[in-house]
Amino acid sequence: MMVKKIAQTLTGLWSLVVGLRVTGKNFFQPQITVHYPREKVESIEGYRGHIELVPKDNDPFTARCMACGSCARVCPSGCITLHIKKVTEPAVSAKKEDNSQKPEQNNQKAAPAKKTKTKRVLEAFELNYNYCSLCGLCVQSCPAGGLRFSDNVYLAGFSRKEFEFDLLARMRAQKEGK
């Protein structure tokens, strides 16, 4: 009985030594933590920042977005608000150029006869990032491939207002900056 107790105590003590050996080994390993603002993690590949608009290949100031509204509909949190202007253009056959500058009501009256085309033009793409859950449903739902995730992940601010972006303006500003 006594012998067994002593043996148990010894194995118990030995287990502590074994554990300390692991600690000791790791003590001399290089540091693996990153001191964030001074250093940044190397790879944020794939990590989702807020969504952004993809510009057209041939025109970096125009978004691929064709203002269909499918992303705004699918978003679970209702983050996306589209500001769309309906521009009515005359059909190609119409000759008068000044038609397009006329107020809309005039055009609509003439619409059935002249076969005008209503184009939806994106004026602003408002994202309320406060409620975004980065689920990716909007990106997937876009028929034009007009959305993607940005790599703007180091975001911090003092008020909610700072997380309400106009993505269209952001896209243009980015391009101008370049």
Binding site: I44, E45, G46, Y47, R48, S133, L134, C135, G136, Q140, F149
Partner: peptide, 19 residues
Amino acid sequence: QRITGSRLTYCYYRFGGVS
């Protein structure tokens, strides 16, 4: 993260597959 885009609260599976 590289595949799903998130580190904790994944939303990766879709109906009929993965995203």
